[in-house]
Amino acid sequence: MLREIKEGHFNLAGKILHCWEALKDNWFVYVWDGTDTPPNAITSMLEDEINHPLPLQLESLPLPRDVLCTLPTVGSILRIAFELPIEKNHLNVLKSGKWAQFINIRLKVYAGLWYGVFTSHSKLRHTPNEDRLIAERQRLYDDRISLKSRNMPIGSMPQSIDSLPESLCITKVNHDHVRHLTLMDVLTHSEVTAKFKCVVRVVAAVPYQGEKFCTPAGKYMMRLTLEDPTARIHAFVVDEDGETLFDGYPGTANVKRKLNRLLGVTECDDSIVVNDRPRNPAWVSVCIKSYYVSKSDVWGSRNFRIFDTKIVDGP
């Protein structure tokens, strides 16, 4: 299952959701089994984010919205690329909506994102829905979506954000009664303007230099990269939302310390940051607002921002 994958060669049973030629002769197969891929450590340098940002997806362009909205919003979707060129007529065997077993595919991580490679030694076996293995996958997914916590990252954290140890509850939100959604729920929502609550990891921030957190007018302005098992998005922290997030203007050093907690940055006892160590950001609850900046292109100009979320003081 996707929740059990590791780097290396692997046999995987999943449902083929879509095939897409992201670039000429560069095909991806989208595979899903209802479980969540494990989170990866982030090895990129935070200072490099402005010039070499973490990608939001493996493809050079995101999927068209009409395709994206047909995909499941719960459970990770693995992209599988082909090591060798593939003839278009061979893609007929990759039927969307059908379950299949991918034998001996190579699993890799790029910029913290999982993907598979169908090599010359890999094989594909179509599997009927009645197969015991597929029936078990479907049962596990049905059990998951019947739970109140179905949108929580399974296998990475407790089933409720409220059950996290107090020392790990890094954020507090003002909408405890609202159910958590996935980032795929956010991306596929039917309206441009909406509000959500999600459990995410903050994997990057721009700017990262403390003296640049605010504009010359003294207002917060930064961009965070959020991820969960279903997607990555950029979300801005602007003006009063930054005041809420950082509890006012506590000074550059304190803002940097709070941001480092979100980003999983290791600090020594004397507050010295260890920059060359892989980061493993914690899961946190955040409120996200979706909005547009151009009335003439509401979907094309859609952005996201953090709101009603506060970083609590550390232990």
Rank of each mutant, 00 (worst) to 15 (best):
T70Q: 13
H52D: 14
R257L: 12
R223C: 13
N275E: 15
L124V: 13
L183E: 04
T244W: 01
H126N: 15
M221F: 15
T225C: 10
R139S: 09
A194G: 11
A205P: 10
Q57S: 08
L68Q: 10
Y208P: 11
P39C: 01
R201Y: 01
Q138V: 11
T225P: 03
D313I: 04
V109F: 05
G97A: 02
Y115Q: 04
C214L: 13
E166N: 01
I86D: 07
K24Y: 08
E227P: 08
E211N: 04
E191H: 14
C287K: 03
K108T: 12
G218N: 07
N104G: 08
D66W: 12
T119D: 05
F28C: 08
E83T: 11
V200E: 02
I170N: 02
F102S: 11
T171V: 03
M1H: 12
L168F: 07
L245H: 04
R150L: 00
V192E: 11
A231T: 01
K88H: 07
K212I: 04
V74H: 00
R201E: 00
L133T: 12
G34K: 01
R3K: 14
I272P: 01
A231N: 06
F28A: 12
S60C: 06
G155L: 00
L226S: 02
R232K: 10
V284N: 00
R305A: 15
L107P: 06
P281S: 04
R305W: 06
I103F: 03
E191T: 14
V237H: 04
Y141I: 05
E47M: 13
W99L: 02
L68P: 00
S120C: 10
T215I: 05
C69R: 14
A205S: 15
T230R: 02
L263P: 06
F118D: 10
K95Q: 11
L68S: 14
V274H: 12
D276G: 13
H121V: 14
I306A: 07
E191F: 08
S285N: 03
T215M: 05
N280V: 04
I50G: 00
E21A: 07
E21L: 03
E4N: 14
Y110S: 14
C19L: 11
S60P: 09
S296L: 08
L263I: 06
V67T: 15
G14F: 08
L181K: 08
K108L: 15
G251Q: 10
M45A: 15
L17G: 06
I145P: 05
I77A: 04
A204E: 01
L61T: 13
R125I: 15
R302W: 09
S146H: 13
A100K: 08
D36M: 09
A194T: 09
A235S: 11
P39H: 04
D276T: 10
T43L: 15
G210D: 09
T171C: 02
C198I: 02
T309E: 06
S285H: 00
D162Q: 02
F102L: 07
I154H: 03
L124F: 08
N26K: 15
K15W: 03
L56T: 02
T252S: 10
S149A: 06
A282Y: 01
V298A: 09
V192H: 11
N89V: 09
I170F: 08
R302Q: 12
C169P: 09
